Amino acid sequence: MMPRNACTPGLMTLLRVGGIFSPDRLEATDILMAGGKIIALGSDLDVPGGWPIHVEEARHLIAVPAFIDQHVHVTGGGGEGGCGTRCPEISAQEIASMGIGTVVGVLGTDGISRSPADLLAKVRGLGAEGICAYMYTGAYRVPPPTLTGDIQRDLAWIPEVIGLGEIAISDHRSSQPRQDEIERIVSDTRVGAMLAGKRGICHFHIGDGKRGLEPLRRLLTETEIPADQVIPTHVNRRRELLEEAADYALTFNASVDVTAFEDAGDGLSSFDAVSRLLELGVPPARITLSSDCNGSLPEFDAEGAYLGMKVARNTTLIADWQRLVHEGVLPLETALGLISTNVARVLGLHASKGRLAVGFDADVALLDSELQPQQTFVSGKSVFKTIKR
């Protein structure tokens, strides 16, 4: 992580790169940033002498929208095997080094030793270190823990709260919510978000249970809730679940979130899952990728007894995404949607994030020829840069 005082940049920053993908390929090679926004795109931009500007020469790199990870256990997940199995917090360096500029923090199984207040404090801490960070209110269980005692108030009064999650269904660790309880919390989230001017998605953890996506199918069939209000994640944890997720996406014109599991076990890697969803006809715009990083990867026996766990990392997210491009599954312009443009739309951040365009947030990742992140800008400030020796 580059110290924030490593250099004294001007009030403006001019990036000169080898190419710009917005995600579509642009003719421009220069990005002018000021006030946290992109204020100009072009080639060989001429800046008057004497202007307070820092020029960053990176002609050997390409610029893309900084990635957005919508499922991060920023305070650490785990705990299924006791207090000694709590996962560690994630650092700003771990986030930015992968080209990620925006994260959404989640609580998981453990909503007891960790709370929405802990999550909010961590999210604000990451913000102080230069990462754009949001959070979901709630955790696995229903009724969900909140900051103010009410889902709608959390959305209305806490700027960092952009939705509800991760609510667990079809999982032995969930609170086994009834259908009417699911409908109530989703409708509460929707109305609270409307009052706050937010999208207010409900981020659903889908477990190994035989019910799969049935509770969400019923929700969209039996109520007036629109499909873009709910996002099922971990849909690649079982092959059968992924097939169901494809049908769900096509039936309801809905989005599904694939998790970049480090060890997919009985499921599919995010590379294989995206490839299969595309084979089944799911449009790329309806697929997103997330890391689940710093969450636990627990192993249970057939009776549900805890056997052990690993800690998820976000390195798999970027590696599998790179593989999708390198092996020709998707062109770079389309693949960028999986971790930028599509995610921004799903979260309701599409007016300011997910694209490199004038007026958008100056969140930029610079990638080398292998698509490996070399520098990350958030709101126009460099928060990560590799050190060349």
Rank of each mutant, 00 (worst) to 15 (best):
Cys202Leu: 00
Asp301Asn: 15
Thr13Glu: 15
Ala249Phe: 01
Gly127Trp: 07
Glu214Pro: 11
Ala133His: 01
Gly127Lys: 14
Arg218Ser: 12
Thr251Cys: 03
Asp44Val: 04
Pro373Cys: 11
Ile225Leu: 03
Val17Tyr: 09
Gly212Glu: 06
Asp257Ile: 04
Gly125Ile: 01
Trp51Val: 13
Arg25Ser: 12
Cys87His: 03
Gly81Ala: 10
Arg190Pro: 09
Pro145Lys: 04
Gln152Leu: 12
Pro298Asn: 09
Tyr136Ala: 04
Pro177Gly: 08
Gln176Lys: 14
Ala121Tyr: 06
Gln152Lys: 15
Leu332Thr: 05
Arg86Trp: 07
Asp368Val: 13
Ile167Gly: 03
Asp247Thr: 14
Asn342Asp: 04
Glu240Met: 05
Pro48Asp: 06
Val358Gly: 02
Ala156Ser: 11
Pro215Gln: 07
Val325His: 06
Gly105Asn: 09
Ser22Met: 03
Ser255Phe: 00
Arg114Trp: 00
Arg173Cys: 01
Val186Phe: 08
Thr259His: 00
Ala92Met: 06
Glu181Ala: 14
Glu370Pro: 02
Arg355Gln: 14
Ser270Tyr: 09
Arg355Glu: 11
Asp110Tyr: 07
Arg217Ile: 06
Val103Trp: 10
Pro215Gly: 09
Asp24His: 12
Val364Phe: 06
Trp51Arg: 14
Gly111Asp: 03
Arg276Ser: 13
Asp363Gln: 05
Leu164Tyr: 11
Arg25Glu: 13
Gly354Pro: 02
Gly265Ser: 04
Gly354Asp: 01
Thr316Met: 10
Val346Gly: 05
Lys353Tyr: 08
Phe360Ile: 00
Pro226His: 10
Ile100Met: 05
Trp321Gly: 10
Glu299Ala: 14
Ser291Met: 02
Val346Ser: 08
Thr75Phe: 01
Thr288Val: 11
Ala319Pro: 02
Ser113Ile: 11
Val256Asn: 05
Leu195Glu: 14
Leu250Met: 13
Lys385Arg: 14
Leu119Lys: 04
Ile287Met: 05
Ile68Trp: 03
